[in-house]
Design a protein around this nucleic acid. Structure first.
Lengths: 218, 218
DNA sequence: GTCTATAAACAGATAGAC
DNA sequence: GTCTATCTGTTTATAGAC
């Protein structure tokens, strides 16, 4: 069968190549602008293979969402770790922000994944429910737990959830807005050095925001 | 003639209606997904009117960028005000952040404009140069001037420019990520009240970031 | 499973009447 | 300026050979 759950995906080489190519092209040009012919060509496969493996273009989009969920799990680990102390939570948050800044600024696949996800979210696409349930909600909840531990505030309070969204927005903008960031900074690319300085800034903002959040509800 | 500079745009009713419809549909579905037939229908005009007024679909995209530039100027005023003192700069920045949070969270046209711009930027579309020159660069430079005045740091230093981008990213995410924000917050819509609380958070983060920026280069 | 060939719908652009 | 009608290319999906 070609319809499988996310827990046991078949490892057909063409299937994998198709998802990879689709992720790249959906991310760069958008779902509608990327044609199935183009995707198949980039994957070194036939157009009919898309219908065979995914039932159609929409199935390929869904497979991309599932692939992103899997990659994210592989990169940042399982969504829910053990609860931690205040100092430890701070260190973990700092580490997440710095790693995200580095990954988002430099890694090429990050561009395509973020662009794809943000477009789907912004448009309210048909995979929004799955995106929220598998990539947004678990990670956000995890960050809220860390934030709550770091500030001593309730992890699921409105203030905490909004604060985490603000932090995420800061990091993500350096990815989606990268073309204008590069122009404004006079850079041709984001060097590892520059990515480090962006990470420094975001960590500084993180500590500042944590301190401000602490003051409001001590 | 139908090719005019941004300073003197002709006010043909159908032309205006077409740009408005295009901005809406480009913003919601993306440039490629929005068909010229659809745009013409929503504008109450004929398909051939697009070719007549804009020379083609690409011309319509360009007209959208120019329209956004004009609207932005009308909303936030001319890009370059007089230099200000430290306390005044703080107040102005606070006002900008709060106004942006309110506008971006609630106003319907904001969604389409931001979605359109961010997609064009992210894709590196053909209008990127114009977008950077007319909407990004002047506003960013203005904010940097305010930031520099508020912290006593050089307005065009790397740290200042990056800090302003981070602040902008925070605000923008509540617009483009709104569907997931709503889900995570358990809201059906962003009420004026909720927008106010988001504004409060962003202003708090602004002050925290300003203080942190001050400490590094006093 | 992978291919070729093709169907059916749709896109953007344009010619020409009014 | 605005319309109808149409041209040309491209899209996704599918039928059927291998």
């Amino acid at each position: 069968m070609s319809e499988m759950s996310a827990t046991s995906v078949d490892r057909t080489p063409t299937r994998i190549a198709l998802v990879e190519a689709a992720l790249r092209l959906f991310g760069r040009k958008g779902y509608d602008a990327a044609s199935t012919r183009e995707i198949a060509a980039e994957a070194g496969a036939n157009i009919a293979a898309i219908a065979y493996h995914f039932g159609g273009k929409e199935g390929l989009r869904r497979a991309c969402v599932e692939a992103i969920g899997d990659r994210l799990s592989a990169i940042v680990g399982p969504p829910l770790p053990a609860p931690v102390g205040r100092a430890e939570a701070r260190v973990l948050l700092e580490r997440v922000v710095r790693a995200a800044a580095m990954f988002l600024s430099t890694a090429a696949p990050a561009r395509d994944m973020v662009a794809f996800l943000l477009r789907e979210v912004s448009e309210g696409g048909p995979e929004l429910d799955r995106i929220f349930a598998t990539v947004v909600e678990p990670r956000h909840r995890h960050l809220c737990a860390l934030w709550g531990a770091a500030t001593g505030t309730p992890p699921e309070s409105e203030a905490t959830r909004l604060a985490v969204f603000a932090m995420v927005g800061q990091v993500l903008y350096f990815r989606i807005g990268q073309p204008v960031v590069l122009r404004r900074m006079g850079w041709q690319t984001i060097s590892p050095d520059a990515a480090g300085r962006i990470g420094d800034l975001l960590v500084r903002n993180l500590h500042a925001a944590l301190a401000a959040g602490e003051r409001t509800t001590p």
